[in-house]
Amino acid sequence: MLVRKDSKVIAVDGSRMAMFKNVGEAFDPVLELIEEHKNPSLRTSELGTDKPGRSFQSKSPSRGAYEPTDLQQQEEDRFVTEVAQRIEQIVGDKDARVILVAAPRALGVIRKHLKPDTSARLLAEIAKDFGPDAAEPLAKMLAKHEI
């Protein structure tokens, strides 16, 4: 994949976002970290302590339980929504060349929160899980990746 010099690569998962700048050549990218955000991971007990809800049938003695809410996933989705807003700001610059690499679930949440014109201006969306400490493996993947 052609990653032009000074293009930005944003790597996102549920708990981290890192923005890199390509300081290398187009076919041999070298990524330099320019911005990083981390979602402080709280224990589930710190996020909430409620028990799952119960349901009762009025015509029979049977009872059932509702599926408990995944509080960790809600927190990750909230963080990824904030990242989507940051991507809106970055891509708002008309000259910005941005490649988005995100974990598949995070990419789905980001897509829901990006405006259509912002999504259209992204150079590529790649559904892979790379953290902010993975600049070198990410650069190798981009060099081999085909759109």
Rank of each mutant, 00 (worst) to 15 (best):
F56M: 10
F56G: 07
Q57R: 12
S58C: 01
S58T: 10
K59F: 08
K59T: 12
K59E: 13
S60P: 00
P61F: 00
P61E: 02
P61Q: 03
S62Y: 09
S62G: 00
S62T: 03
R63Y: 00
R63P: 00
R63E: 06
G64P: 00
G64T: 04
A65Q: 08
A65H: 04
Y66Q: 05
E67G: 02
P68W: 07
T69V: 15
D70S: 10
D70P: 05
L71C: 07
Q73G: 09
Q74T: 12
Q74N: 15
Q74S: 14
E75L: 13
E76L: 10
E76F: 15
D77W: 10
D77F: 11
D77Q: 15
D77T: 13
R78E: 15
R78Y: 14
R78T: 15
R78C: 10
F79E: 06
F79Y: 08
F79H: 05
F79K: 05
V80P: 08
V80G: 08
T81H: 08
T81Q: 11
E82Y: 09
E82A: 15
E82H: 13
E82Q: 15
E82T: 13
V83L: 07
V83T: 08
V83S: 06
A84M: 09
Q85G: 11
Q85R: 13
R86E: 11
R86V: 08
E88Q: 12
Q89R: 12
Q89M: 07
I90Y: 06
I90W: 08
V91K: 01
V91E: 01
V91H: 01
V91I: 10
G92N: 06
G92D: 02
G92K: 02
D93F: 09
D93K: 11
K94V: 10
K94E: 14
K94W: 05
D95I: 05
D95R: 11
D95W: 04
D95F: 08
D95T: 13
A96L: 03
A96D: 03
A96Y: 01
R97Q: 09
R97G: 00
V98Y: 04
V98D: 03
I99T: 09
I99H: 05
L100C: 02
L100H: 01
V101F: 02
V101N: 02
A102D: 02
A102L: 02
A103R: 05
A103Q: 09
A103Y: 02
P104V: 06
P104R: 06
R105A: 09
A106N: 04
A106F: 04
L107K: 05
I110G: 02
K112W: 00
H113Y: 14
L114A: 06
L114M: 08
S119Y: 09
S119L: 14
S119Q: 12
S119G: 12
A120T: 05
R121G: 06
R121H: 11
L122R: 06
L122H: 04
L123N: 09
L123K: 12
L123M: 14
L123W: 08
